[in-house]
């Protein structure tokens, strides 16, 4: 049996191993190291991305979990479709709210913040 896949009856036994694994696991991994770096900030923290990729890809590859919270219930969201249809990737870029991170190319010096509720 592989980690984390199990029948309910055995949940307890596997829990310990699983917690360990989650600690080491990153959500997303780059297969290639960054060859043409772009520096930007997210919530004030400096991050690096590959030139030409979208803000959403750059944030996911940096393992940013949530991009925004919703105006209705303030629940957390992150990109769902990556193709411009769901609007769950909205962030504030250089002071402009409601930017679709998956449709915006990341650029050197961009200042990006989570979008909290309504703009």
């Amino acid at each position: 049996m592989i980690y984390g896949v199990h029948c309910k009856d055995t949940v307890q036994t596997h829990m310990a191993i699983l917690t360990n694994r989650l600690d080491e696991t990153l959500m997303y991994q780059r297969l290639l190291s960054i060859s043409d770096p772009v520096k930007f900030t997210f919530e004030g923290q400096t991050l690096t991305a590959q030139a030409g990729e979208s803000v959403a890809a750059a944030l996911l590859a940096s393992n940013v979990e949530s991009f925004r919270d919703t105006p209705v219930s303030h629940s957390l969201r992150s990109p769902f479709c990556m193709m411009g249809s769901c609007f769950d990737c909205l962030v504030e870029i250089d002071g402009q709210p409601n930017c679709q991170a998956c449709m915006t190319e990341v650029r050197d010096g961009m200042e990006i913040y989570r979008q909290r509720g309504e703009a």
Binding site: M27, C81, M82
Partner: peptide
């Protein structure tokens, strides 16, 4: 709607456009 849930298409887009994959 939880963060970390995407369409399968989104995963493929990450792969095509950024050579990035989901770990587990």
């Amino acid at each position: 709607t939880l963060p970390g849930v995407t369409t399968a298409g989104a995963i493929q887009i990450l792969l095509k456009a950024s050579a990035t994959v989901a770990d587990d």
